[in-house]
Write a protein that binds this DNA or RNA. Sequence first.
DNA 1: GCAATGACGCTCT
DNA 2: CAGAGCGCCATTG
Length: 121
Amino acid sequence: MPRTDVSMSGAPDGTYARIYAAVRRIPKGRVASYGQVATLAGLAGHARQVGYALHRLPSATAVPWHRVVDAQGRIAKRAYPEDGMLQRMLLEREGVGFAAAGQVDLTRFAWKPARRAAQRR
DNA sequence: GCAATGACGCTCT
DNA sequence: CAGAGCGCCATTG
């Protein structure tokens, strides 16, 4: 059962739905860490669930999973390196630059959402 | 229903 | 500075 389908149409009581919603808020050309996404999703401290949720995302998802990196701005270590390469490619295509160490320049691309926003009100 | 696993994060050693 | 461990919680077998 592909929970990949956020069939929570209008009933975002699902943890995934919240995470996906938060990820979708990440502006193009910016990146957010798992913990950040978790916080925005109202699941502060549950960074793991964020990664888990994204892991289950299908390739045809509308969620910009590639904009989600770890707290250090690096691409999460995936089972298949090619996927990580893909993520990097997608980010670079959006204008996100990478450091030699293979991590995003958080000083310039880290997404800083307006706190009152969090779009919650 | 219990045990193990997992795209992380933070702290301690 | 680097490595290891614990926590967090949902999903799966």
